[in-house]
């Protein structure tokens, strides 16, 4: 069997982490977690995930900061990032895409859309 793709879930809400974990595992992904902006970067470096799901409102720093830092760190720069946030897409979607995110979803996200976006980002 092929290696499972590893997804890093950066999300401060524990319930949401648990839900995304169940959803991704049932879709045959391996999952790792970070719950704040500071841990996010070191965990990303250690785990080298294939894809990152990123919340924007995080303790210890904004999700945009995490995105910028990820883009600046050579080994992490090419990992696709999908932003999943409760924030207004009107103000944040374009900014996220310009900062290098592969997609932006507003919570509550439609699971099928999210799964398609993950697949697309992984195989691009």
């Amino acid at each position: 069997m092929l290696d499972k793709n590893k997804v890093l879930i950066i999300e401060d809400d524990q319930d949401m982490r648990r839900a995304l974990n169940l959803r991704l595992r049932s879709n045959n992904y391996e999952t790792v977690f970070a719950s704040d902006a500071i841990m996010a970067l070191s965990i990303a470096k250690r785990e080298m995930p294939d894809l990152i799901l990123l919340d924007l409102g995080l303790p210890g720093g904004d999700g945009f900061t995490v995105l910028d830092r990820l883009r600046d760190m050579a080994p992490l720069a090419c990992i696709p990032v999908i932003v999943v946030s409760a924030r207004d897409p009107e103000k944040n979607k374009e900014r996220a895409l310009e900062a290098g995110a592969a997609a932006f979803f507003q919570k509550p996200v439609e699971n099928s859309d999210l799964m398609v976006a993950i697949q697309r980002a992984l195989f691009q």
Binding site: D13, D15, M16, A19, L20, L22, R23, S26, A86, Q106, K107, P108, V109, N111
Partner: peptide
């Protein structure tokens, strides 16, 4: 949105 998202997630799960 945050709690609604969690409800939505678990219902769909």
């Amino acid at each position: 949105r945050t709690p609604l998202t969690v409800i939505h997630q678990f219902v769909t799960l």
